[in-house]
Amino acid sequence: MLNDDLEPMDWLVAAGKVLEYALSSQNVRRAVQALTDVGRAGATSPHEPTPSPSTRDLASAAEWGTLTELFQRDPTLISVAAAVGIVQPWRDHQEDGLQDSLMARSGYQMLLDRKIWTAPPVDDFHLGEVDEELLEAVREFPQQRPANLPAAHFWWGP
Protein backbone atom coordinates (compact mmCIF):
# COMPACT_ATOMS: atom_id res chain seq x y z
CA MET A 1 0.00 0.00 0.00
CA LEU A 2 1.05 3.48 -0.59
CA ASN A 3 -0.13 4.76 2.75
CA ASP A 4 1.22 2.27 5.25
CA ASP A 5 2.80 4.91 7.40
CA LEU A 6 -0.31 7.06 7.89
CA GLU A 7 -1.52 7.91 11.36
CA PRO A 8 -5.15 7.23 12.35
CA MET A 9 -6.07 10.86 11.93
CA ASP A 10 -4.63 10.83 8.44
CA TRP A 11 -6.89 7.90 7.57
CA LEU A 12 -9.89 9.85 8.66
CA VAL A 13 -8.87 12.75 6.49
CA ALA A 14 -8.28 10.39 3.57
CA ALA A 15 -11.66 8.81 4.15
CA GLY A 16 -13.33 12.17 3.93
CA LYS A 17 -11.55 13.05 0.76
CA VAL A 18 -12.42 9.80 -0.97
CA LEU A 19 -15.98 9.95 0.23
CA GLU A 20 -16.42 13.38 -1.20
CA TYR A 21 -15.44 12.05 -4.59
CA ALA A 22 -17.63 8.98 -4.16
CA LEU A 23 -20.61 11.17 -3.36
CA SER A 24 -20.07 13.44 -6.31
CA SER A 25 -19.58 10.56 -8.75
CA GLN A 26 -21.96 8.10 -7.10
CA ASN A 27 -19.06 5.67 -7.06
CA VAL A 28 -19.76 2.69 -4.85
CA ARG A 29 -16.16 1.43 -4.94
CA ARG A 30 -14.90 4.79 -3.63
CA ALA A 31 -17.50 4.78 -0.91
CA VAL A 32 -16.26 1.36 0.11
CA GLN A 33 -12.73 2.72 0.14
CA ALA A 34 -13.91 5.43 2.51
CA LEU A 35 -15.25 2.74 4.82
CA THR A 36 -11.94 0.89 4.55
CA ASP A 37 -10.07 4.06 5.53
CA VAL A 38 -12.31 4.55 8.54
CA GLY A 39 -11.58 0.93 9.50
CA ARG A 40 -7.89 1.51 9.22
CA ALA A 41 -8.20 4.62 11.39
CA GLY A 42 -9.71 2.51 14.08
CA ALA A 43 -7.14 -0.23 13.83
CA THR A 44 -4.04 -0.12 16.01
CA SER A 45 -0.77 -0.47 14.32
CA PRO A 46 0.04 -4.12 13.61
CA HIS A 47 3.34 -3.44 15.29
CA GLU A 48 1.83 -2.11 18.49
CA PRO A 49 0.16 -4.43 21.01
CA THR A 50 -1.70 -1.56 22.62
CA PRO A 51 -3.59 1.26 21.04
CA SER A 52 -1.43 4.22 20.12
CA PRO A 53 -2.11 7.63 21.74
CA SER A 54 -3.62 8.85 18.52
CA THR A 55 -5.92 5.85 18.45
CA ARG A 56 -7.01 6.57 21.99
CA ASP A 57 -7.87 10.11 20.96
CA LEU A 58 -9.75 8.97 17.97
CA ALA A 59 -13.07 8.89 19.73
CA SER A 60 -13.01 12.63 20.26
CA ALA A 61 -11.20 13.62 17.06
CA ALA A 62 -12.56 16.75 15.44
CA GLU A 63 -12.30 15.08 12.04
CA TRP A 64 -15.32 12.98 12.93
CA GLY A 65 -17.55 15.95 12.58
CA THR A 66 -16.82 16.44 8.88
CA LEU A 67 -16.78 12.76 8.20
CA THR A 68 -20.08 12.14 9.91
CA GLU A 69 -21.70 14.83 7.86
CA LEU A 70 -20.41 13.25 4.66
CA PHE A 71 -21.55 9.77 5.60
CA GLN A 72 -24.94 11.14 6.46
CA ARG A 73 -25.33 12.95 3.19
CA ASP A 74 -26.27 9.98 0.97
CA PRO A 75 -27.47 6.96 3.01
CA THR A 76 -28.42 5.07 -0.17
CA LEU A 77 -24.91 5.15 -1.51
CA ILE A 78 -23.62 4.00 1.86
CA SER A 79 -26.18 1.24 2.00
CA VAL A 80 -25.18 -0.03 -1.44
CA ALA A 81 -21.54 0.23 -0.47
CA ALA A 82 -22.09 -1.67 2.75
CA ALA A 83 -24.47 -4.27 1.35
CA VAL A 84 -22.70 -5.21 -1.86
CA GLY A 85 -19.47 -3.21 -1.95
CA ILE A 86 -17.78 -4.42 1.21
CA VAL A 87 -17.31 -7.92 -0.21
CA GLN A 88 -16.23 -6.71 -3.62
CA PRO A 89 -12.47 -6.43 -2.84
CA TRP A 90 -12.55 -10.01 -1.59
CA ARG A 91 -14.48 -11.07 -4.72
CA ASP A 92 -12.17 -9.21 -7.05
CA HIS A 93 -8.89 -10.18 -5.53
CA GLN A 94 -9.69 -13.10 -3.25
CA GLU A 95 -7.03 -13.44 -0.59
CA ASP A 96 -5.37 -10.19 -1.63
CA GLY A 97 -8.59 -8.24 -1.28
CA LEU A 98 -9.86 -9.83 1.88
CA GLN A 99 -8.21 -7.48 4.33
CA ASP A 100 -9.66 -4.44 2.55
CA SER A 101 -13.11 -5.98 2.78
CA LEU A 102 -12.65 -6.70 6.50
CA MET A 103 -11.39 -3.15 7.12
CA ALA A 104 -14.39 -1.75 5.25
CA ARG A 105 -16.71 -3.80 7.32
CA SER A 106 -14.97 -2.64 10.50
CA GLY A 107 -15.20 0.94 9.37
CA TYR A 108 -18.91 0.55 8.74
CA GLN A 109 -19.26 -0.92 12.20
CA MET A 110 -17.45 2.03 13.76
CA LEU A 111 -19.94 4.33 12.13
CA LEU A 112 -22.79 2.22 13.37
CA ASP A 113 -21.28 2.27 16.85
CA ARG A 114 -21.09 6.04 16.76
CA LYS A 115 -24.75 6.03 15.77
CA ILE A 116 -24.34 8.56 13.05
CA TRP A 117 -27.45 7.38 11.26
CA THR A 118 -30.92 7.41 12.77
CA ALA A 119 -31.42 3.96 11.19
CA PRO A 120 -28.69 1.66 9.92
CA PRO A 121 -28.32 1.99 6.13
CA VAL A 122 -28.31 -1.79 5.69
CA ASP A 123 -30.87 -4.03 7.21
CA ASP A 124 -29.78 -6.91 9.39
CA PHE A 125 -30.51 -9.53 6.78
CA HIS A 126 -28.31 -8.06 4.09
CA LEU A 127 -25.59 -7.16 6.57
CA GLY A 128 -25.75 -10.74 7.79
CA GLU A 129 -25.25 -11.88 4.18
CA VAL A 130 -22.11 -9.78 4.09
CA ASP A 131 -20.79 -11.11 7.38
CA GLU A 132 -21.53 -14.64 6.30
CA GLU A 133 -19.49 -14.26 3.13
CA LEU A 134 -16.65 -12.67 5.08
CA LEU A 135 -16.71 -15.37 7.69
CA GLU A 136 -16.28 -17.96 5.00
CA ALA A 137 -13.46 -16.03 3.55
CA VAL A 138 -11.71 -15.62 6.89
CA ARG A 139 -12.03 -19.28 7.44
CA GLU A 140 -10.42 -19.89 4.10
CA PHE A 141 -7.66 -17.34 4.64
CA PRO A 142 -7.32 -16.87 8.42
CA GLN A 143 -3.93 -15.32 8.02
CA GLN A 144 -5.65 -12.33 6.41
CA ARG A 145 -7.57 -11.54 9.53
CA PRO A 146 -6.32 -8.23 10.89
CA ALA A 147 -4.90 -8.66 14.38
CA ASN A 148 -5.21 -5.11 15.41
CA LEU A 149 -8.91 -4.47 15.03
CA PRO A 150 -10.95 -3.55 18.09
CA ALA A 151 -11.98 -6.72 19.88
CA ALA A 152 -15.62 -5.95 19.44
CA HIS A 153 -15.18 -6.14 15.68
CA PHE A 154 -14.48 -9.82 15.45
CA TRP A 155 -18.09 -10.61 14.73
CA TRP A 156 -17.18 -13.09 12.06
CA GLY A 157 -15.63 -15.27 14.63
CA PRO A 158 -12.70 -15.57 16.90
Binding site: V28, T76, S79, V80, A83, V84, G85, Q88, R91, V122, D123, F125, H126, E129
Partner: peptide
Protein backbone atom coordinates in the same frame (compact mmCIF):
# COMPACT_ATOMS: atom_id res chain seq x y z
CA UNK B 1 -20.01 -11.35 -16.62
CA UNK B 2 -18.95 -11.02 -12.96
CA UNK B 3 -18.27 -7.35 -13.54
CA UNK B 4 -21.71 -6.85 -14.96
CA UNK B 5 -23.16 -8.85 -12.12
CA UNK B 6 -21.47 -6.59 -9.59
CA UNK B 7 -22.83 -3.53 -11.33
CA UNK B 8 -26.28 -5.05 -11.44
CA UNK B 9 -25.98 -5.98 -7.80
CA UNK B 10 -25.33 -2.35 -6.95
CA UNK B 11 -28.45 -1.37 -8.80
CA UNK B 12 -30.44 -3.97 -7.00
CA UNK B 13 -29.05 -2.93 -3.67
CA UNK B 14 -30.26 0.61 -4.27
CA UNK B 15 -33.80 -0.72 -3.94
CA UNK B 16 -33.61 -2.92 -0.83
CA UNK B 17 -37.33 -2.69 -0.29
CA UNK B 18 -37.84 -4.71 -3.46
CA UNK B 19 -35.74 -7.53 -2.19
CA UNK B 20 -36.55 -8.11 1.48
CA UNK B 21 -34.92 -11.29 2.69
CA UNK B 22 -33.46 -11.99 -0.73
CA UNK B 23 -29.80 -12.22 -1.48
CA UNK B 24 -28.71 -9.41 -3.79
Amino acid sequence: MKLELADTRELVAREPAKYPGRNY
